[in-house]
Design a protein around this nucleic acid. Structure first.
Lengths: 135, 135
DNA sequence: AATATATATATGTCAAATACATATATCATA
DNA sequence: TATGATATATGTATTTGACATATATATATT
C-alpha cells in the first residue's frame, strides 16, 4: 500500500509518487543513522537526546531518523565497540547516558566516509550515462 | 548477527567490518532495483532474464539485485503503471514476458535521476563538512 | 537415451531496519 | 496541579529483498 495506489484514473498526468522526495529516501532500510552518530560524536561526547536534536546537522540522504531508532542504535553501536557510554553525574535533571566514540568507531567513520566518496562517483557515472543517452 | 560480531579480542586492529564494501550497500533495504529497471527499459523493451543479466550496466550503489526480487519488482511496477508487458511470440524456447516502459515510467525515471542529483549534492556537503573539520 | 547446463519465470520463507506508538521518569513553569 | 521540555527505552507492524526452491523449455555433452 503506497500513497499513490489510490487507483482509478490519474494515469496520464504527473502523479504524487513522482515527487522527488519519495526517491531521496532510502527507507525502510538504511537511514544512515550510524554515520550520523559517528560524525557527531567525532566532534565530542554527547548524550542521545542531544544527538537527536543535532541529527539535521549531518548532510545525509533521507529524513532524520526516529527517536527510538537512534537510542536503539546507540546501544547496538556500544555493544559493537564503536562507542562507550557513561552516566553523567548531575545533581538535577533526568539522567543522561553520555556517549564517546572509540578508536574502532573512528575507523568505522573513516570507512563510511570512503563509502560516501565512492557512492558519489557511482552516482556521477549513472548521471553521465543518463545524459550521454539523451544528448 | 553481522559478520563482525565474532566477539572476543580483535578490538584494537582493523576489523573486517571496517571494509568499505559493507557501507557501500544499502541493504537490507533499497537495492535501487526500480531505477535500474527503468533505466535499462528506457533504452528499449526487454524481458526479465535479459534485464537480470544487464543489471550491472547501471552504475548504482550496492550489489546487483537478486533474481526473485527483480521478477517480483517487475510485476509490481507493471501493476503500478510504470511498465507494460506482453508474452513474446517465439516458436522455440521458454516463453518470455517482454516489458516496455510507459510514459508514467519515464516520469518516474526522471524523478529518480533528479533524486540522484540531489543525493550527490548532499553527499558532497557531508564530505565537505568532514574535511573542513580536519583541515 | 540420459544427464547436465542455459534460458526463463515465479513463489516460500526469513531477517533486518526502522517508523510509529507508547511507557517511564525528572524537572521547570504556569 | 497540570503542561511541557528533557531524557531514555520498549512494543509492534511494515517494507524490502536475500536465499532457497520450484517449474518448464531447449541445447549440449556423455
Amino acid at each position: 500500500m503506497t500513497k499513490d495506489d489510490v487507483a482509478g484514473g490519474d494515469r496520464n498526468h504527473h502523479s504524487p509518487a513522482d515527487d522527488v522526495e519519495t526517491y531521496m529516501r532510502e527507507g525502510p532500510g538504511k537511514r544512515f543513522i550510524e554515520p550520523r552518530i559517528l560524525f557527531l560524536l567525532s566532534r565530542g561526547p554527547a548524550h542521545g537526546y542531544e544527538l537527536l536534536g543535532r541529527m539535521d546537522e549531518v548532510p545525509m540522504p533521507g529524513p532524520v531518523p526516529d527517536t527510538g531508532a537512534v537510542y536503539r542504535r546507540l546501544r547496538e553501536m556500544e555493544k559493537g565497540g564503536l562507542l562507550i557510554s557513561a552516566w553523567d553525574e548531575r545533581d538535577s535533571g533526568p539522567r543522561r547516558r553520555v556517549y564517546s566514540i572509540t578508536a574502532q568507531g573512528g575507523r568505522r567513520l573513516a570507512a563510511w566516509v570512503e563509502a560516501m566518496r565512492r557512492r558519489m562517483q557511482t552516482l556521477q557515472s549513472f548521471l553521465d550515462l543518463y545524459e550521454e543517452k539523451r544528448s
